[in-house]
Design a protein around this nucleic acid. Structure first.
Length: 757
DNA sequence: GACGGAATCGTTTTT
DNA sequence: CGATTCCGTC
């Protein structure tokens, strides 16, 4: 094997990491520092120099996509298949383990995986069965409660809840939820991890077997591991601690999902002999972008510490645009994209990043108007579509008749005359006998005729039809290849006819998706020696598929900051940089939340290769109400000398800012870009744009009604204030008003509804 | 069981 | 404002 191919492409720090002696190693890898490269080359290095077989390696990634990419790159590097290596997400690997040891793990043989939606449905059902008032018991809260404790490794008995009615009830629901999962042979995402952990913890001989096999463990995105994942790895590597973990404490953005940044620190405590290596040379961004990002993240406490640097050029300053409202913000971005394209750039080079999905709307509208193709990431994914889940429910029920979630989903889909009363009777019977809905149904069918024993007559017939259908389909597909089995079930179930009856456009798309499901089955390669159908069903849940097909067109990329992690773009727009939006209202109150938002901002900034724009809007409609947010404090954390404000297109004459006798500088007046720092941006009054000829006339037209400098005005939300500046014309006319209570704000005259007093 | 009007509620998301 | 969900009616 050619070692130079492994080592030559690396810089000194990367090479030190790749060739580090076997043992605990923590690589702090900054954004764009070649993290994936180090991991793949480390695997290749182990195989080539330590004589490690791929069979002895276990590597964990955060997403399936990352796993696939890593496998490809390792194979390219080595020129040999990496098949026997265990490489995947924590959930994927745990699933693999549990399929192999379902008996030891106390699971049903054909156990099915519950996705978040199924989990929520089940919880709603339990709440209803417990007679709990929905208003006081939000299913989402219960779901969060259960998942949080599972993520931290706590079974209901280990939850240290208060004695109050709410906590007691929560724990009770957790217990009932567990019982329901056990009874119906399903496990949720968190349970995959917890079971896999308990399996090794409680079966020392099994653990020993895996320890002997996996002498080399690698973990990517270590800062995003939750408690149970951390403990699982610790259990596997044992005292030797031969784990090679890579992460970046500044890019931990999944705390709300149980990820704990502290695991990076804990690794160093739990394995005192661990080597700590840093990758700080960045190959992605310009000096200016890195300086801005470094300055921002320096505001966070308890970092392991790391400063990115580059050999590349300083590049252009980070640009800042204060938009009037979200429409203006979107138009600004689209104009910049058009300029970029005019100068020979690709549309796909440009990424529009935002904090929350709802923000995509205004950009989509502006892009459509400008006829610029775009692609929005996120949203419903293939295996999450209703019709796909319906079809999968048939298949799941065939594999595991006790899967109540699937049973409920399809028992009357397409409609076969099984109504609420019939189902209630079945549920009741199931509860009495502690059995699944399927067993209860079969019992009631055989008992039909005996008085009061179950649904009889017409509905009894209908339910018999359903039972017969499932049994028949199950029998018919046993010998079929996977894709034919899927096709047969989709047709046999009546789902195709059912959807064909829907409104033409919608129904057509659904039928096409069902056909797509058959193609997916045809292309599916089962992992290991798992039965194809079981493997396919697990695959559908664990890897719910790309949001959209790969774009065949060069288009602008739009996504949340979260989904941008790991990607890079020459031109990046971070939009909606406003306090309340980003940092988000709900994360602003506590320091932990705020610091995570700051990391998210850091992630966003470090996506940019050449040019980074920050934009915020002074006015924005949120949930149908006008809001006036201050510019994000994160803007104020970027050193002014690295920022360059882009001025709006239309400017009018300079007006004296002060009106004698009325303008009082207020201490409450916030500096416009946060933290009281004298920002590079000082509003629009400092610019040097020449007055427009003839502006005076149009100005007076626009501002009829007594709006003038120094006028006292009243605003619906901000109360009373004094007009400090007037500029722009027509629909762009804006005023700066110094409100008595809220300080000075820029408002668009068109929208502000100011009353002159 | 399908449809429609009212009520409700709004991060981030991969597994 | 807009998506989703819930409840009542035909």
């Amino acid at each position: 094997m050619d070692l130079s191919a492994i080592l030559n492409p690396l810089n000194d720090a990367q090479r030190a990491a790749v060739t580090a002696p076997v043992g605990p190693v923590l690589v702090l890898a900054g954004a764009g520092s070649g993290k994936t490269r180090v991991l793949t080359h480390r695997i290749a290095w182990l195989i080539c120099t330590e004589g490690v077989s791929p069979h002895g390696i276990l590597a964990v990634t955060f997403t399936n996509k990352a796993a696939a990419e890593m496998r490809t790159r390792v194979e390219q590097l080595l020129g040999v298949p990496s098949g026997p290596m265990w490489l995947g997400t924590f959930h994927g690997l745990a699933h693999r383990l549990l399929r192999l040891h379902w008996r030891e793990a106390g699971l049903a043989q054909g156990f099915q995986i519950l996705d978040s939606e199924d989990q929520l449905r089940l919880i709603k059902k339990l709440l209803k069965a417990s007679g709990l008032d929905e208003s006081g018991w939000a299913p989402k809260d219960v779901q969060y409660f259960i998942n949080k404790h599972k993520d931290e490794g706590r079974r209901p008995g280990q939850v240290r809840a208060g004695a109050d009615r709410v906590s007691v009830q929560m724990v009770k629901l957790y217990e009932e939820y567990e019982a329901a999962c056990a009874r119906t042979g399903v496990i949720d995402f968190a349970e995959l991890l917890l079971r896999a952990f308990e399996l090794w913890r409680d079966q020392p001989q099994l653990l020993a077997q895996y320890r002997a096999r996996f002498r080399h463990v690698l973990v990517d995105e270590f800062q995003d591991t939750n408690a149970i994942q951390y403990e699982w790895i610790r259990l596997l590597v044992g005292a030797s601690g031969a784990a090679f973990v890579v992460g970046d404490d500044d890019q931990s953005i999944y705390r709300w999902r149980g990820a704990r940044i502290e695991h990076l620190h804990r690794f160093l405590v739990d394995f005192p002999q661990a080597q700590l290596l840093r990758l700080e040379q960045n190959y992605r961004s310009t000096g200016a972008i890195l300086a801005a990002a470094n300055a921002l993240i320096a505001n966070n406490s308890s970092r392991l510490g790391k400063t990115l640097w580059t050999r590349g050029a300083q590049g252009a300053a980070v640009k800042l645009y204060a938009a009037f409202n979200e429409r203006d913000e979107a138009e600004f971005v689209v104009t910049r994209v058009l300029e970029w394209v005019q100068h020979g750039g690709a549309r796909a080079d440009a990424a529009i990043l935002y904090r929350s999905n709802a923000q995509s709307r205004s950009f989509e509208e502006a892009l459509i108007m400008a006829r610029v193709p775009y692609r929005v990431y996120g949203g419903l994914r293939f295996f999450e579509r209703a019709e796909i889940k319906d079809a999968l429910a048939y298949l799941r029920l065939i594999v595991n008749r006790d899967d109540d979630a699937s049973f409920e989903r399809i028992v009357n889909l397409p409609a076969r005359g099984i109504g609420a009363r019939t189902l209630d009777a079945i549920r009741e019977l199931a509860r009495e006998t502690g059995s699944s809905l399927w067993s209860a149904t079969r019992a009631s069918v055989t008992a039909t005729g005996a008085a009061g024993a179950g649904p009889a007559g017409r509905s009894g017939g209908a339910i018999q039809t359903f039972v017969t259908l499932i049994e028949r389909l199950a029998g018919e597909i046993t010998r079929l290849p996977l894709h034919e089995a899927v096709d047969h079930v989709i047709r046999g179930s009546g789902l195709v006819e059912h959807y064909q009856k829907e409104r033409a456009d919608r129904g057509e798309a659904r039928v096409e998706n069902l056909a797509e499901l058959v193609s997916a089955a045809r292309g599916f390669v089962p992992e290991g020696d798992m039965p194809p159908l079981e493997g396919f069903l697990a695959h559908a849940v664990l890897e719910s598929g790309e949001t959209q097909a790969e774009p065949f067109e060069d288009c602008v990329q739009m996504m949340t900051l979260h989904s941008a992690k790991g990607l890079e773009f020459p031109l990046v727009f971070m939009c909606g940089m406003e306090d309340g939006l980003f940092p988000h209202q709900r994360s602003q109150s506590d320091l932990e939340g705020l610091e995570e938002e700051r990391r998210l901002c850091y992630v966003g900034m470090t996506r940019a290769m050449r040019q980074l724009y920050l934009t915020h809007a002074e006015q924005r409609r949120v949930h149908g109400v006008d809001t006036y947010n201050a510019a994000s404090r994160f803007i104020g954390e970027v050193p002014p000398e690295l920022l360059e404000e882009v001025r709006p297109r239309i400017r009018l004459a300079q007006h004296p800012v002060q009106h004698p006798g009325t303008y009082r500088p207020s201490r409450e007046t916030p500096a416009r870009y946060g933290n009281g720092r004298a920002g590079a941006a000082t509003g629009r009054s400092g610019g040097a744009v020449p007055a427009m000829a003839g502006a005076r006339g149009s100005l007076e037209e626009t501002l009829a009604g007594g709006m003038r400098l120094g006028a006292r005005v009243r605003h619906g939300k901000f109360g009373e204030g004094v007009v400090l500046t007037i500029e722009g014309q027509g629909s762009h006319a804006r005023v700066q008003v110094n409100f008595e209570r809220q300080g000075s704000k820029w408002l668009m005259l068109q929208y502000a509804n100011l009353e002159v007093m």
